[in-house]
Amino acid sequence: MSDTANSGLKQSFQLKSASVSLTALELYYFDEEEFETNLRDKISQAPGFFKDIPLIISLEKYEGLDSELDFFKIIGSCRRHSIHVIGVRAANDDQRRLARGASLALLPGGSHRDQAATAPAPAHDAPISEHTAEPIEPAVVPSEPAPAKVVNQTVRSGQQVYAPEGDLIILAPVQAGAEVLAAGNIHVYGPLRGRALAGIHGAESARVFCQSLEAELVSIAGHYKISEDLQENGWKSAVQIQLRDDLLVVTPLDKA
């Protein structure tokens, strides 16, 4: 099983530098009930997506009292929804102590406090490195873009297509009751009748393109509009949808 090609020495493991994109929960204050309710709402938007994901708690914008910060309760809430809290970032000394008490990993701070190791974007995604022997690669260096996932078949009611990294391109209709999710952009070369969630890891620059907007819901980086609110603009026509100042903006494709 183990690789013994180079050395005669057998090792049970090897430490490697890994860069993983994961979801950060930016906490403003903590109230157990509210937290639970908000979490449930978020998850109900894309139930399949949140199952068994790792999560870090970002305390960059935490405004509550440290004494209210109960990591055990946060972990418990998340665990009930099959989300695994693995660490905190941007914690001050007191918060670090609390986090350590809850066996959470401590990650370098967010963009304000620690410029060294963070992405330039308002990072919902934190590039993190585990067990680094070598210095952390600056995250600014663009990595190889993830290949787009291409689907040729109609996405039928009840089906879900998920591109965990990169774009999702669908060359067929997305039917009512179907759900398409992508870390990047979503292109639908056909009518979009179901739900489309782009930028699910928080990429606010993600967009949704479709040949006919008939969607039940469109979401970009967690900001969403439901069918009712999509009717007035570009309904049943070719549009793109993007996020501007936390608002979803629909523009016809021929005027883009």
């Binding site: 039928r156 009611s157 039917q175 009751g177």
Partner: peptide, 11 residues
């Protein structure tokens, strides 16, 4: 809608 669902299941 239900027919669409069953088509997805057939596939």
């Amino acid at each position: 809608r239900d027919s669409d669902r069953i088509l997805g299941i057939l596939q």
